[in-house]
Nucleic acid binder design. Structure first.
Lengths: 344, 344
DNA sequence: TTTAGCACTCTCGCATCGAGAGTGCTAAAT
DNA sequence: ATTTAGCACTCTCGATGCGAGAGTGCTAAA
């Protein structure tokens, strides 16, 4: 009762492929003629009954064709789809774009989001790389205007955080430099906890700066501590399943709300190894908010140095093959770039 | 033929107010009963004919009520609406939120976008402040990993730009510091042009760094050189006029595409004084892309120090009074904050 | 100048209807 | 024991028609 016969697997795959392409319920007759199957529509019908009973297909109403269920898509992605890969010309095009882009993190992230959105014709999402357990590397304090001081903090893994702080009273650049030098000496290579519990007598300024450093290091450890890059939001509206405004609204909100993203990324992607691609189909029962969407997510980067997350969000009726390949490929490219940025 | 009688102005105002509220074409009978006018529906009808002939109203079809035309909204905003202001409790709430927020630019921008979106129930847009003609203030070069160097550039007005650069070969921190010191001495207070034409014998490293500095200063002068913050994108989908997917798509693309935003902001907002609020209704004839939207835009900041742009995008049927007040108020708050950040 | 009255127009919701697509079942064929 | 042809049945979808309701524009009276 559990397994599928080879023929059932074939029919399920064809139904899903056709539905992904046309967005129309697919009927038995249509299937045999389109793919010139050497069996009759009645046979296909019988198999469809079986697939429906097993929960892989659904029929919108008595006399429409069949439509894949969430379970059907999952089976397809896990067992039917096989390993797909992007055409090498596409890969070259993408790689070329990355070579041409500036090599600052911001441009790269923006490009990655753009490529993902464009290739998959869906909304994309990229988080800036962050280090898992940041260690102090370097601090600069630069006076700008009046009491305003720019604090630049460099962490292990190359994560850089900057912040303006307003002092209680103006302080000379010499004094600032002295403080920075002192802290650089004391904190070299320490993690946030160690810095927080640093002993010694310090004045108010030094303590303030240290506190900010610890805060920033904690924030850097947060998966959403850095920028979140999005692109292709308008693509989701192009899909017929988002014609219903409420559905589209929910999808947009998912991408907009940091709190939701944080929850999502923490609970799913962090359990994924770099290199692995995770597919969430129809919310997987426990994500009410994205009941009508699918996401393809992956981590990129180098564990120990810095890692980030990227992925796309689209309708459940998504071209999983192409999307998964794209996500995997871009994740790989970004991983290489992260490694490049951190080694000589 | 050009001017409106007092009664026509009244009726136009009521039609617009009612339509903004209900999104339904408003008929003559409905108007007199809802606002208990002491004239008959026939009179209102006659005036409506006049208003329609003058181009301020439109009728979707023979037997529906009237709907404001773009021209009608413009007349309303310019001549009928009067100066509106937010209720002081609302103002206090907003101001309080800003006081509680962190004082780094990123948090402030994010909060501003959030407040705008929430208050106006529309999509919001905020660009980070940038200086008009940046002058060199301070440079830091910090070695991070291998050949990677973090360049932090502080410009007059407090604009800070950071960038990773990859050197041809590893360089010691001492050497980096020496280069930075040299450049700091030479470039103090100069603008991009002057730095570009700086004479003197320099080695490859120094020249590279100088070139990057000039690039960055140019980018800082660009209105979209900094981050763009958005919020409330899902709000636009809630409005009935965006039920048509293509309309919603166009609106979203406007906010997504940097190139379009750049064009838009350059050609409209830069001509506006800080403090002034600009209202674009239905694309104002020359913005095909936002034919179905309105935008309320303002500049904030302090001329000479740093300025930015903020605004909201919503349907043409927008609560202009409230939206304009909100935009003006938030722009004022941000201006104060920018000034605060730059003076002691 | 305003207003009552009225014929007219147009939309919208509702019901009806036929065509078409696709199913599920049964009985025959392989 | 499968597979398939045949067929009645079900359901959607688009077209059509119709009545109610809303709102207009015009005319003539106030």
């Amino acid at each position: 009762m559990n397994g599928l016969t080879e023929r059932q697997r074939l029919i399920l795959a064809l139904v899903i492929r056709d539905y992904i392409e046309t967005a129309q319920p697919v009927g038995s007759g249509h299937l045999v003629s389109k793919f010139t199957l050497d069996m009759s529509s009645a046979t296909v019908r019988n198999e469809m009954v079986a697939l429906t009973e097993k929960g892989y297909l659904r029929q919108p109403h008595t006399s429409a064709g069949r439509v894949p269920s969430e379970e059907g898509y999952r089976y397809f992605v896990r067992q039917l789809m096989g390993q797909t890969d992007l055409p090498s010309t596409t890969k070259h095009t993408i790689a070329h774009q990355f070579l041409q882009a500036g090599q600052d993190v911001d441009s790269l992230m923006r490009l990655a989001a753009s490529v993902l959105a464009h290739q998959s014709q869906a909304a994309s999402l990229v988080t800036a790389p962050h280090v898992e357990q940041a260690r102090f590397k370097h601090l600069e304090l630069i006076g700008t205007y009046g009491r305003q001081v720019l604090m630049v903090l460099v962490l292990s893994g190359g994560d850089v955080r900057q912040q303006m702080l307003a002092l209680a009273e103006p302080v000379s650049q010499d004094r600032l430099s002295a403080v920075a030098t002192m802290i650089n000496d004391q904190c070299q290579g320490l993690d946030a906890e160690r810095i927080a519990s640093l002993p010694g007598q310090m004045d108010a300024l030094e303590q303030d700066v240290l506190r900010l450093i610890v805060d920033d290091m904690h924030r850097s450890g947060n998966i959403l501590g850095g920028e979140v890059y999005r692109d292709g939001l308008s693509h989701v509206l192009a899909e017929p399943e988002f014609a219903e405004v409420e559905v589209a609204r929910k999808a947009l909100r998912i991408l907009e709300e940091r709190s939701f993203l944080e929850d999502l990324l923490t609970r799913t992607v962090l359990t994924t190894n770099v290199g692995g691609v995770q597919v969430l189909i129809g919310g997987e029962d426990n994500w009410e908010e994205l009941r009508d969407c699918s996401m393809v997510l992956a981590r990129y980067g180098a564990p120990g140095l810095a890692t980030g997350t990227l992925g796309v969000l689209g309708p459940i009726r998504m071209a999983y093959g192409r999307t998964i390949s794209t996500v995997r490929f871009v994740a790989g490219l970004l991983s290489d770039l992260v490694v490049d940025l951190h080694t000589e």
